[in-house]
Design a protein around this nucleic acid. Structure first.
Lengths: 344, 344
DNA sequence: GTTAGCACTCGTGACTGGAGAGTGCTAATT
DNA sequence: AATTAGCACTCTCCAGTCACGAGTGCTAAC
């Protein structure tokens, strides 16, 4: 299934040209553009073969060739050389990154924006999650007679909060007592463990413990649910969207925030960047798009995923390098703050 | 500057028809559609007068009439009757609302989505903010030798968090001691007050207090900065976007999350819904859109703003009612959890 | 294996003419 | 004085036609 040297070269040129111009590339054009030592007729023959084998196609008889999914796939697999990002680009990205804010949400959001800008496509970054959360500390702060704010800290610096309504008025001392007791009882425990020993609590404590358990389970289940999407406009600006209904189709898919369903995070190979091209995507609506995905974080520990979404006509090499680089940065940041030693 | 009864009626019909169909409305069409007791010629005369006075326009000679900004303005001001939402609609909205989640962010986000769906346009809802935040409680949780998670609770159940790096290793006891001391010293204080008495602290305490002060100031300054935007697709689907560059223009404006600059939140009259029509918007890019804005929350206390953005061709009456209703719901929710009594 | 040559195919853009919708004006009607 | 019928006029929209150019695929010669 491997191509002759010359055909591979040609495929590479076609892809390069098409990615740049978004226009079908003709035999003549390519010969002139690259000063090939063959005539356009030869190229036509070669193109015909490439087409037979499914690497490129024809929008219609008298148009040039356009890479097919299989062509891109071959390119990504065998032809493309992934080169390191130029160091000034890296520098720029690092710089944008270090403006990251205080809160986790904020810098995940920022990373999506940075990635989207760098690759000129849409980017999705999920919040990182931990395999199973352990309670680290909880706090109850009264805000009204029958209501208190429950703040819980999970390991690896995740903070969750919820307003809790009590069936009867509680003062701050009572709340503090409950918090102290629960802190002592449940420190380091998982949701399941809490469920196990919940029975021995007073009614009020039980009420609080229940809320904690629910929040923790939701967080464990939740995982990739929440993700930031940025740069939709980058994609929509591309020339393939001459007609506006295509834009709407894509928007329809992307705007339902349920990105996780859309983008095959489960395909992520633990160790690097994965590329899904066109029809390789499960979702029908994504058949004209490619997705470049990478996990980030500490393997086996806190981790998340990030992806770039764009038309199949995409600068794969550059995109892959960028995703790899930014995923690396994110991993570093996570490791710095929340490394395994901090699990306690 | 007031119109004759008949002309006002006519304007109303034209707007109604145009809002429904998105097509210029002709004299003949309107006579037949509504069985008017006049001939189309009479209507034409009246239309000509309305046009002279700037209430409607002409895309070109032989097209029907289209309402102008001034026409919409007159309609909103004088013609439109704002009727209460049908109770089943209210019910649906209430229902969607009560699925709101645990965290403040989450239900602000949800409200934007609900609003966008209800009015079939884009919706922006800012996070609510308080006039000046008071510290309620702080917590330090060690996560690594030289790092701790600082969690602070402000009044009205706002929780902020940040990872803090210490110049030297600290154990949990030291952290707890610092937290206790600062809790005692600063409870109920504002950022400025903290700055005032910061001098008397130990070095480590000072470090922590500084971080707190910064977070609080940022929160006080921040305010409307953060907002949720939903339903862009609703707008883009409208027939006025036959051509895709108009879509991109709008997206360009909306996607820069800096919604606050875009939408004149400062125009909000404290007590109700404000409408900005077409060129009344400051931003040039918004000259073809209308914005319906309302504050929500507790006047003088915690509050935010919400807005609907859509083409000037908009169901003003329904939109205004919906915004009013949802703003009311949000206010209720805020009041329930965080009313003045909870200020402590 | 490569190339020149050529007929053929399609999409694109410019131009045309007719149909339809709507206007604005004038003169007649109420 | 207000309303209406009538009509010429304007402009968009659409379908059809045409020529052009880019590109292909095939054949025959190198």
């Amino acid at each position: 299934m491997t191509l002759t040297e010359r055909r591979a070269q040609l495929l590479s040129l076609i892809i390069g040209e098409y990615v740049d111009t978004a226009m079908p590339v003709g035999s003549d054009a390519i010969v002139r553009r690259f000063d090939l030592p063959f005539s356009s007729a030869t190229i036509r023959n070669e193109m015909a073969r490439l087409e037979d084998e499914g690497y490129i196609t024809h929008p219609h008889t008298s148009a040039g060739r356009v890479p097919a999914d299989k062509g891109y796939r071959y390119y990504v697999e065998a032809l493309m050389q992934e080169r390191d990002l130029p160091s000034e680009v890296k520098q720029t990205i690092r710089h944008q990154f270090h403006q990251a804010g205080r809160e986790e949400d904020e810098w995940v959001h920022l990373s999506a924006a940075v990635l989207a800008r760098a690759v000129e496509n849409a980017a999705v970054v999920t919040l990182p999650r931990t395999p199973e959360s352990h309670l680290k500390r909880l706090e109850l702060v009264g805000i009204q007679d029958g209501a208190a704010l429950l703040v819980i800290v999970l390991q690896q610096a995740r903070v969750k909060q919820q307003v809790l309504i009590f069936p009867e008025p509680m003062d701050q001392d009572q709340l503090t007592a409950i918090a102290n007791h629960l802190n002592a009882a449940f420190r380091g425990h998982t949701a399941d463990e809490i469920r196990g020993s919940q029975a021995q609590l007073t009614q009020m404590e039980w009420h609080v413990a229940n809320a904690i358990r629910e929040i923790m389970s939701a967080s464990d289940r939740g995982g990739y649910d929440e993700a930031y999407l940025e740069g939709v406009r980058n994609v929509l600006q591309k020339p393939e969207f001459g007609t506006s209904d295509k834009m709407l189709n894509l928007l329809e898919v992307l705007e339902q925030r349920n990105l996780t369903k859309l983008i095959p995070f489960r395909e992520i190979s633990a160790d690097g960047v994965t590329v899904m091209i066109g029809a390789e995507n499960e979702e029908d609506a994504m058949h004209d798009y490619s997705v470049v995905i990478s996990p980030y974080g500490v393997p086996g520990g806190i981790s998340g995923a990030m992806a770039v979404v764009g038309p199949t006509r995409m600068r794969y090499s550059q995109t892959i390098s960028t995703v790899r680089f930014i995923a690396g940065l994110m991993s570093e940041m996570l490791a710095t703050y929340y490394d395994e030693g901090a699990r306690e």
